[in-house]
Design a protein around this nucleic acid. Structure first.
Lengths: 136, 136
DNA sequence: AAATCAACTTGTTATTTGCAAGTTAATTTG
DNA sequence: CAAATTAACTTGCAAATAACAAGTTGATTT
């Protein structure tokens, strides 16, 4: 296992010790917003994560309690990766990151209009996505 | 300069292409919440960033328009690093990260009570910190 | 029974990080 | 005013991490 090291007692540095990289939050996004739940689904995302990095991040997110591995309801060959409540609670972070991108970066047109809706309706959309994630 | 590469048109992956690492947001935190503005002040933060990594992040944050280098009002030997509006707009992201840590991670007691205040008074505190950063 | 799929692991190379030391221009000290 | 110190970096090198390709193992499908 990984001996996750904490750099300080600062809440910001501590959360960055866990998800401060270019991939972890994309996995959370894929589960929370793109309906993905398996290893191969994560692999096929358009950012093309390397397979060893994906395995590493999944195990880190599992040991830090952000996601849990479960039996897949449809096949014993698959593993169903589910966000815990702790993981679902990252949604407001994702939302603020998306809103910032929407304001300050060039992004896909489809994403842009989704971002506009998010901006107009932030709280309701967060509640709805969190509820959906819990139900799953 | 750095040829910042974008992995996809997804707003989340695009912002992570810029600040998806363990250090960039700590620099933003130091400016926004700890009153730091110079290279040596960043170096002395308790997480101990390496000097070459700090130089690298500062130049990346500058080329992406998150911060700007200015003359220091008190000394020609110093550089005053100031957040741009684009950088200041990262505050809501920092706040959600801090609130998540406050709920889900063990953190310093002082930080914890600050987090409690933040939770009770989020919008007002964000407005106040952003206004202060702009005035500076 | 053979091929394919799903989730990894392993090996190799490239890139990034961490650490120590050095550089240069400005500023302070004796 | 020469010498030491400060500020902001840069450089060199070893260690860790990431990217890429290929291989493994236990389902599942053909």
């Amino acid at each position: 296992m990984k001996p996750l090291k904490v750099r300080s007692g600062c809440p910001l540095s501590s959360v960055l010790d866990i998800i401060g990289d270019k991939w972890s939050l994309l996995i959370v996004r894929d589960i929370l917003m793109n309906g993905k739940n398996t290893y191969n689904e994560f692999l096929r995302s358009k950012e093309r994560i390397a397979t060893n990095v994906l395995a590493d991040r999944l195990s880190l997110l599992e040991t830090t309690g952000i996601l849990a591995r479960e039996e897949h309801p449809e096949s014993k060959a698959k593993i169903f990766y589910r966000l815990t409540d702790k993981g679902i609670d990252l949604l407001p972070v994702l939302v603020e990151l998306i809103l910032w991108s929407n304001t300050h970066l060039p992004i896909d047109e489809a994403a842009r209009s989704y971002g506009e809706a998010l901006k107009r309706n932030k709280e309701a959309m967060i509640r709805q996505l969190m509820a959906a994630a819990r139900k799953q």
